[in-house]
Amino acid sequence: MDLRQLRCFIAVAETLHFGQAAQALDMLPASLGRHIKMLEESLGCRLLNRTTRNVSLTDAGSRFVGPAREIIKRTNDLEAMFRQTRTDTASVLRVGAIDSAAAGLMPRLLSHFRESHPEIDIQLLEQKTIRLLPQLLSGRLDIAIVRPPAALDPRLASRHLFFETAVVAIPDGHPLAARATVSVGDMADQPLIVPDRKSRPHSHDLTMKLFAEAGLTARVAQIAEEKQTIVNLVSSGVGLAIVPRWTARLAVGGVTYVPLDVPAGSARNKLALSAVWLRDTRVPARDAFLAELDKHMEELETSA
């Protein structure tokens, strides 16, 4: 039995879903399953009941999860105590951001931050959520602006910021490009370009869920990963794409961005942004960054 196995078991116990637990831990479901199996073999009993549809705790699992959480909490507290190498006079803040935040939020926020705190240098890393969260846990980042994961590691703290505005990228000359707004129903028979779910689950699920909530099936013509690629495919006439409003700043010719008429509902939450950082650590520069976020939140949300 080791700490990795305990963390895997706790993640599954909290989500009762191997896929969500694996995503939260940035690992493959098969690898997660192996860690759980090794833990059960070392204890000599089953901790989880698994079927093709459901996951549940056994009686042994229910008794084991509490003490396991306590072991992990004590380990985390010990790590935090000895990993705290920052001082009150730290002059470098390491910030991670997904592409939406790096292009849409950070330019304005950094302008304000540098004006208020010229003594603090910012190191900015742009990456996907699944790559940024492990770097927070390892101490390589102080804070990250990400899509909130389905299950957040208990070692991390988070704060919801706002929801980004969704627009539809449409080829110039397309009949929908002249509209003031576009609804999901307007796109019912249109070919769509959607992000790869493995690397961009939130953006992928936004499109699919909007269509599902409207009682429609998305007509996916092309899967792509990067926003730049998606917009270039729109420009070439491959299809339409639902994207965050900041994507218009990519300056790709031949594309019109029309506001998406999003009905009130859960699908809109897929474009949420959150600030995430390592719990129980004291980083004055990070606190100053969060304060600047709060101070200018209304302006930042309006421009998102």
Rank of each mutant, 00 (worst) to 15 (best):
Q5D: 00
F9S: 05
A11F: 07
Q23L: 11
A24I: 07
M27S: 06
L28T: 10
L28R: 13
A30F: 10
A30H: 09
L32C: 12
L32Q: 08
L32S: 10
G33S: 14
M38K: 12
R53T: 13
V55W: 10
V55S: 05
T58R: 10
G61P: 01
E70L: 07
Q84D: 13
Q84W: 03
T85H: 12
L93C: 04
A101N: 02
M106C: 12
R114Q: 12
E115H: 14
S116D: 15
Q127V: 00
T129C: 09
L132V: 09
G139S: 08
R140A: 14
R147L: 04
D153P: 02
P154S: 01
R159I: 01
V168W: 03
D172R: 14
H174C: 11
D186G: 08
D186L: 06
Q190H: 00
T207H: 07
T207Y: 09
M208V: 15
A218G: 13
I230C: 06
S236K: 13
G237C: 04
V238A: 15
G239K: 09
W246L: 08
G254D: 11
Y257W: 05
V258C: 08
V262S: 02
P263E: 07
A267R: 06
A267M: 04
L273M: 01
W277E: 01
T281Q: 14
T281C: 02
E292S: 13
K295A: 15
S303T: 09
